[in-house]
Nucleic acid binder design. Structure first.
Length: 479
RNA sequence: GCCCUCUUCGUCUAGCGGUUAGGACGCUGCCCUUUCAAGGCAGAGAUCACGGGUUCGAAUCCCGUAGAGGGCGCCA
């Protein structure tokens, strides 16, 4: 049987990183097995529709390269792929359930109370008591005649228990009395997630249902639905949660949760994918750096874990640096260019600069801060920077070195890295000094910083001869 | 409240009856070096949540307990 997986997000306006991981796993499993990856938009909550948010979903999948084979924008054999366009279908199937006694009309009006759930107090919320399920045909007819609005609820026999085997968590058994007569079709005629999901997954031929483990508790109800329809039950793969730093579900209050946030900070899509893939899955080897192609090759749902994982941006940062380092130079430069201050991309050999710092950039967002000193020297730096114990430099030694260097470099006919380095080395040798005591003052003088993304000779080359000499003069004036 | 699930270094994890409990991030130190970083090496860091079993032997199997997370919406 060909594998068919689906990613079924709701248009909320942003791509939650946890949802992205679900999409990634579904995508990887499909690709790994030469199957089909489907995108389905779950927009059944009319009150929550957010303008343009479907676009965000398309863009997110595009930028991360999780391209789908079937979906609203691409079509396919089991469309439409947007739930709001499938309303007729849900009604048809709900009616079928109704006719067979697996569902009933409920005329109770609980819309008011259900508006705002009380999140602070975990007051016991009792499920629906099933009263409308006991209405006589005459009562139902009377209500219908009165034009009373109604919902359709699943009728669940409270005797016995329902079980299913989750691919990750194993056998899950729940007593039926724990199961609520959940609403299948809302008053407005739209299906609930609970119903639409089952109907669509079946109609779309989904073989592996992958979703967050918050659905484990309600899956028995879905199983009952499959059974009522007489449908084959697909493989269920519930994924452990991704937690925020506090150990709670990753939420906006604790920092970035949206793919867009990370992209804006200069995390590479491949690094993000790589990192979240490892949150809850491991290859069984010690490999941690993965390209998307690697992931497709190595991914295996059998190695998904059960325990929730905390999102650690520090490790993501490290992985991001690894991915930046691995970028082909041309591609790196393309990306870096967008982050260089205008003065740099104009006046400097920016491609050369990229080459010098590619190995040190952890995230693109840091580039302006790392390179600002090239565009303009902050002349107010402290002379104390010249004093460095390990290199045995002092204010006096620095002054002497810089004065000499000004002459040595000033006499240089050509201006490029190798020549500059050779000149400085030659000077140090002539003085019988090690390179450190000479390089340190030079680097401080031309950068004004204790920490720079690249060495003194590289910086001097980028700055050009006049500016290098000028900055040395500025330093000399301080000393 | 009821139900479901989870629990190995701070974090991500390996482990699936016998290991000095391995790796990665982070941290510390050393080396290299043209500073920092990168790279290389080394180190600290886990009585495997706790308590009982089973077994010659348990992080691994069983039963409890605790803690944490999730569900109980005309949200998904």
């Amino acid at each position: 049987m060909t594998v068919r997986t689906r990613f079924a997000p709701s248009p909320t306006g942003y791509m939650h990183i946890g949802n992205l991981r679900t999409a990634l796993y579904a995508y990887l499993h499909a690709r790994k097995n030469k199957g089909t990856f489907i995108l389905r938009i779950e927009d059944t909550d009319q009150a929550r529709l957010v303008e343009d948010s479907v676009k965000v979903i398309y863009e997110s999948l595009a930028v991360t390269g999780l391209e789908h084979d079937e979906g609203p924008d691409k079509g396919g054999p089991v469309g439409p792929y947007t739930q709001s366009e499938r309303r007729g279908l849900y009604k048809e199937y709900a009616l079928k359930l109704l006719a067979e006694g697996h569902a009933y009309r409920c005329f109770c009006d609980k819309t008011e109370k259900a508006e705002e759930p009380d999140e602070e107090h975990d007051a016991p919320i009792l499920g629906y008591d099933g009263r409308c399920g006991r209405l006589s045909p005459e009562e139902i007819a009377a209500n219908l005649a009165k034009g009373l609005p109604y919902v359709i609820r699943q009728r669940i026999d409270k005797e016995g228990s329902t079980s299913f085997r989750d691919f990750i968590y194993g056998d899950i058994v729940v007593e039926n009395k724990q199961l609520d007569d959940q609403i299948l079709l809302k008053r407005d005629g739209y299906p609930t997630y609970n119903f639409a999901n089952v109907v669509d997954d079946h109609l779309m031929g989904i073989t592996h249902v992958m979703r967050g483990c918050e659905y484990i508790s309600s899956t028995p109800k879905y199983i009952l639905l499959y059974k009522a329809f007489g449908w084959e039950i697909p493989e269920h793969i519930h994924l452990p949660h991704i937690l925020g730093p506090s150990g709670k579900k990753l939420s906006k209050r604790e920092g970035s949760v949206a793919l867009g946030d990370f992209l804006k900070k200069g995390y590479l899509p491949e690094a993000i994918l790589n990192y979240i893939a490892l949150l809850g899955w491991n290859p069984g080897t010690e490999q941690e750096f993965f390209t998307k192609a690697d992931l497709i090759e190595k991914f295996d749902i059998a190695r998904i874990g059960k325990a929730p994982a905390m999102f650690d941006e520090v490790k993501l940062l490290w992985l991001n640096a690894q991915h930046i380092k691995a970028l082909p130079p041309g591609r790196a430069h393309e990306l870096f260019l967008g982050f260089y201050p205008a003065a740099i991309s104009g006046a400097f050999d920016a491609a050369k600069l990229t080459g010098y710092i590619q190995g040190k950039v952890e995230k693109l967002e840091d580039i302006p801060r790392m390179t600002a000193f090239l565009a303009g020297l902050d002349e107010k730096y402290s002379p104390e920077l010249f004093v460095h114990a390990k290199n045995k430099t002092t204010l006096e030694s620095s002054r002497a070195v810089l004065a000499d260097l000004q002459a040595v470099l000033g006499a240089l006919p050509a201006w490029e890295y190798a020549g500059i380095l050779a000149a400085v080395k030659g000077y140090a040798e002539a003085k019988g000094a090690k390179l450190g005591p000479v390089m340190w003052p030079l680097r401080i003088a031309i950068s004004g910083l204790a920490v720079t993304p690249t060495g003194a000779a590289e910086i001097a080359e980028l700055l050009g001869k006049p500016e290098t000499l000028r900055r040395i003069s500025v330093a000399l004036a301080k000393l």
